[in-house]
Design a protein around this nucleic acid. Structure first.
Length: 402
DNA sequence: TCTGGGGTCCTAGGACCC
DNA sequence: TCTGGGGTCCTAGGACCC
């Protein structure tokens, strides 16, 4: 094992390599060195690509049309969310066998605070090596690990280790690690912030570090400016928060959908809003939450996007209330034959349903929507999702083929 | 056939209250 | 007569992440 001074490196960041693609090909050895793209759909983007595909310039979030152009012989596979979720859950359990202080950031990455695990393991580096070996062994996929004094640095370190590597950033080498890198390597600095920093003549993290904080604040806003300056010196007050407890629900639940082709047909839009409202409501009830603020999102064919929201005087998790609000917000836009690309419905301000006093409203019937939808949930559970749908979502029966 | 779907967090202005 | 601030909620938009 390398001799690296990892004292003070209490944060480990683990990131699966090309996660969806790795899972998709792990039982298909003939594809192990092939360019494989996971993604698809009619107007989809790349979810994940193997490193063989990346050599052609294919990247995550790239439109599939472009990806296919760059790499016409790539094997395209649709994502298998169930399988990926199962692998994700198993990997997170492996992390928790090292420390309970695991903060998942997504399906395929997590922060671990290992400061309390150093009696069982000799060092943070040893923990990183242990996790990499176990995941390779148990899941037959590779991951990259960053070991560092702060989350930001651990995240940047694992990125530096990709693919299938481990990078330690010793306390004494923080600025040497950070300063040569481009500003765009900072986690949280995307396209817009990179462009803004470039306009200021700041291209490396060292440039940011040596810019007076008030200059950054004037250009980027007080908080972003201060945070960028701190991060450029390796200061990071972000704490690792173990996964939300059951008593702390998500902040919002939403669904949106891009139409197969842009539409200006209000009936099509309304039917989609109903479907999305039903989807969101069902997920809310499954999570046992209700919420007060309903947000409608509309994206037009030129990709401009607007949102409209309304906060109700009560919390809800039932389709008709969410749908009625979304429809009203849509109607108030007063669109005249606008070409619509996407619509979305989101409910925010979520609370545990059990903690929300369910006051009877003036218009509420004794047997309300709530009871009706609980019956629906039960029927769906027993007979499947297609068993119970709003009437307007039921397609006319297709003529039988002879 | 350019640009998914799930989220989080921040900002900024106005309303409203004290 | 002057033109205070602070706090919170709501709304709209934007940046960013995977």
């Amino acid at each position: 094992m390398k001799t690296v001074d990892d004292a003070g490196c209490s944060v480990v960041h683990v990131d699966m390599d090309a996660f969806y693609a790795s899972v998709a090909i792990r039982d298909r050895p003939e594809l192990h060195n092939a360019p494989v793209i996971v993604g698809g759909g009619h107007r989809g983007v790349v979810l994940s690509a193997t490193y063989a595909a990346r050599t052609y310039g294919v990247r995550s979030a790239m439109p599939m049309t472009r990806a296919r152009r760059l790499c016409p012989h790539a094997v395209v596979i649709a994502p298998d969310f169930e399988c990926v979720s199962a692998v994700s859950a198993a990997v997170m359990e492996t992390f928790r066998s090292v420390t309970p202080l695991v903060e998942p950031l997504s399906m395929d990455e997590a922060f671990l605070d290992v400061s309390g695990s150093l009696r069982r393991f000799s060092s943070p580096l040893a923990i990183g090596e242990h996790l990499r070996a176990r995941i390779a062994d148990e899941q037959r996929i590779t991951c990259s690990v960053g070991v560092a004094p702060t989350p930001q640095l651990a995240k940047m370190a694992s990125r530096r280790g990709k693919p299938d590597g481990l990078v330690v950033v010793p306390v004494a080498e923080v600025t040497a690690f950070l300063h040569p890198q481009g500003v765009e390597e900072i986690w949280g600095v995307g396209e817009k912030t990179t462009a803004a920093l470039h306009r200021l003549g700041l291209r490396t993290i060292a440039d940011v570090a040596h810019t007076p904080v008030d200059v950054l604040q004037r250009a980027m806003g007080p908080r972003v400016g201060a945070r960028l300056h701190a991060l450029a010196w390796g200061d990071d007050d972000r704490r690792i928060i173990a996964s939300r407890g059951a008593d702390e629900p998500e902040h919002s639940i939403g669904a949106d959908e891009t139409f197969g082709r842009d539409t200006d047909d209000a009936d099509v839009v309304l039917r989609e809003l109903l479907r999305l409202s039903a989807k969101v409501a069902a997920r809310m009830r499954a999570a046992k939450v209700s919420g007060r603020t309903i947000t409608l999102r509309v994206r037009f064919s030129d990709f401009t996007t607007l949102t409209r929201s309304r906060t109700l005087g009560y919390s809800t998790s039932v389709t008709p209330e969410i749908y009625a609000t979304a429809v009203d917000l849509f109607a108030r836009l007063g669109l005249q034959r606008a070409r619509i690309r996407l619509v979305g419905v989101r409910v925010e301000g979520l609370r545990e349903a059990a903690k929300v006093p369910r006051q009877l409203r003036l218009d509420e019937r004794p047997f309300g929507w709530e009871d009706a939808e609980k019956a629906v949930d039960l029927a769906v559970h027993r007979f499947g999702r297609m068993a119970v749908r709003p009437a307007t979502l039921v397609e006319p029966r297709q003529p039988q083929a002879p």
